[in-house]
């Protein structure tokens, strides 16, 4: 059985923001290759893994989980301190005093500079400086403008069930795809059914940069079906009850115009049939996931979105429930076995 915390630890330790996916793809490709007849990294940086079922004219199912992460980009240096910009959607308030690794070879380490509370003026203490006012202290080490960086944050188990790391958005979902592929051959005899669709796994690039990787990959593959896996918001004391999901309450099945109704209904029905905890997530207009671009690739792709609840998104301390990851994988495996040999 796959060691999920081990996989999360390994994938999340890698710094690979949007457009700089080579390091994470290298590691993910090694993990994926055992489940595929062939893997490749395409021009945009997507990791593609092909797992045909052996049947002629079988429908093609694209399984998507983006591998890139948010980070920073060095923008220049002033007196040995590095100015930087956010690379992807980031909250300026999480930056002060964070450790940052710049992905030079060898890496350059730095700290986002901030003043100690003792010497802050009242105005400074109340201010909420923007990222453009901050700088990273690299102890004088030069970082060329354009160099990407990520938070320094080792992943760790927060409890028996909760795991904490940077970039669980969305490497946790990639781990769930691996787990689903592992579950498939075990599920086949239980359900008395062989897999009858060709699977293409897409560890997509540049999701945090306007969904660019999945757009290119879906045009290349032109699948009949796609299941997009990504993270969604988990409940915490400050959230409204609407549109958030308790950690441990299972994956969320997307319902909305981008999510094909019949696919969403079948997935929910399978979850009920097999007692898999799950939620319904209403995704109005755009989903904010790769589903937005995959669904309208070429002549159109039937698309479902399965989401993993996650707390503290786009910070160094993202938190997921490994039970939700397992249930997402189980639900996905059940769904895969129903595809093919019929029209949906």
């Amino acid at each position: 059985m796959l060691d999920i915390p081990g996989i999360l630890g390994k994938l999340c330790a890698i710094g690979s923001p949007s457009g700089f996916e080579r390091p994470v793809v290298r590691a993910a490709r090694e993990m994926l290759s055992g489940f595929c007849s062939r893997t490749e990294q395409d021009a945009l940086g997507n990791l593609l893994g092909f797992a045909p079922c052996g049947e002629e004219n079988a429908p093609v199912l694209l399984l998507d989980a983006h591998l890139d992460e948010v980070g920073v980009i060095a923008a220049g240096s002033e007196e040995g301190y590095i100015r930087f910009r956010a690379h992807g959607g980031m909250d300026a308030r999480v930056f002060p005093a964070q450790g940052v690794t710049f992905l030079t070879d060898p890496p350059v380490y730095g700290v986002v500079a901030c003043l100690p509370p003792h010497i802050l003026s009242k105005a400074q203490a109340e201010a909420s400086p923007g990222i453009d006012e901050m700088y990273i202290d690299t102890c004088g080490a030069y970082v060329p403008p354009g160099t990407p960086g990520v938070f320094d944050a080792e992943g760790f188990a927060l409890s028996d069930t909760l795991y904490c790391a940077k970039s669980l958005d969305n490497r946790a979902c990639f781990a769930a795809l691996l787990r689903a592929l592992e579950l498939l051959p075990r599920l086949e005899p239980l359900r008395g059914r062989k897999r009858r669709c060709d699977i293409v796994v897409c560890g997509s690039a540049q999701e945090e940069a306007r969904l660019r990787g999945a757009a290119a990959a879906s045009w290349k593959i032109k699948p009949q079906y796609a299941v997009v896996t990504d993270v969604t918001f988990a409940a915490q004391p400050d959230t409204e009850p609407d549109g958030v999901f308790a950690l441990g309450s299972g994956p969320a099945v997307g319902v909305g115009p981008v999510c094909d109704r019949k696919m969403a209904e079948r997935i929910s029905a399978l979850a009920r049939e097999h007692g898999i905890p799950h939620n319904i997530e209403v995704m109005t207009s755009r989903t904010g996931t790769n589903g937005d671009v995959i669904g309208v690739a070429a002549g159109g792709v039937m698309c479902a979105v399965l989401s993993l609840p996650l707390r503290y998104m786009h910070t160094p301390s993202e938190v997921i429930h490994t039970g939700d990851l397992e249930n997402l994988a189980r639900l996905l495996a059940e769904y895969i076995l129903t595809l093919g040999g019929e029209a949906l």
């Binding site: 115009p257 981008v258 207009s285 755009r286 669904g295 309208v296 690739a297 070429a298 002549g299 159109g300």
Partner: peptide
């Protein structure tokens, strides 16, 4: 379909 969400239907129809 789905014009109110950014012309999603017209996009795939025109392609096909």
């Amino acid at each position: 379909a789905q014009a109110e969400l950014g012309m999603r239907g017209a996009k795939t129809a025109a392609y096909a």
